[in-house]
Design a protein around this nucleic acid. Sequence first.
DNA 1: TCATTTTTGATACGGCTTATCAATTTCAAC
DNA 2: GTTGAAATTGATAAGCCGTATCAAAAATGA
Lengths: 143, 143
Amino acid sequence: MSKHAKEMGVLKDHLGKHQLKFTRQRELILDAFLKQEHITAEEMYHQLARKDPHLGLATIYRTLNLFCEAGLAQARHFGTQTQYDNISHKGHHDHLICTGCGKIVEFENCDIERLQEEVASRNGFTIQTHRLELYGLCSRCRH
Amino acid sequence: MSKHAKEMGVLKDHLGKHQLKFTRQRELILDAFLKQEHITAEEMYHQLARKDPHLGLATIYRTLNLFCEAGLAQARHFGTQTQYDNISHKGHHDHLICTGCGKIVEFENCDIERLQEEVASRNGFTIQTHRLELYGLCSRCRH
DNA sequence: TCATTTTTGATACGGCTTATCAATTTCAAC
DNA sequence: GTTGAAATTGATAAGCCGTATCAAAAATGA
Ligand SMILES: [Mn+2]
Ligand SMILES: [Mn+2]
Ligand SMILES: [Zn+2]
Ligand SMILES: [Zn+2]
């Protein structure tokens, strides 16, 4: 049984339901993706260049977006490039980002979430999504 | 005494401190900018085309970025284009954004801010900036 | 195997913003 | 008010990141 059997199953389910095909590239990219917490398309392109030098960047983008549709990934626009967040085994969370070294720390805080709902309803809004990112220096970079 | 004398003073101070010059374009753009809460460079370009058809888009971008450095504006990346937020007479705030009509509502919530600090320090971070955006439907768009 | 449909990879394109650079304007010193 | 160094402007090229295009290749299932 492969290391990522469960997620591979999620992907195959999604493919089956949408008349999409299971390809060598999709398998390769999923395997690499699941080893990461956050990764950009470009980073993955360079990583995978060793395993398959002919894998195109467009395929990486297409496939990571496919993972988003399948619920395995989520696109996050932190800096200039899109980070694909591996949410296969995680619920909702927000991020702390170090402006020094780029380190990303995940966190959840129900109190903040609840206050967000309060702010929204006070203004007559119904929240669909939100983004909360805290930018600053990690302990290592502060010194 | 002009309507925007105070902000014009802030701009002139900044110019003086940085060996920059006071130009007709900068005055024109500041006047238009201060009448808005949030505006994109493109929107301002079209608005000002009537007053000065030769005003270039690059000048608008440059000048809005200058206002950011002078502390009069703040760039916010809500959607595809950058919104320049008029903060000349406002403190820090976050935003509710309607995904239906694009309406933007500003809010402040010290409790959220305090919890953010807690999360950060618990993780060894010192916050420099943050972004909090709540996306959803306003009361009008919900019905 | 065969036929149909989807996918892939190379690359052109597009939206938004900044860089480039010659011509113009500002402004402080005469 | 002239002058001249320095900054600014406007037109447009370039850059970045991601998507669209399309012919060739691969996958599916009858
Ligand atoms: Mn994450
Ligand atoms: Mn605002
Ligand atoms: Zn760091
Ligand atoms: Zn609305």
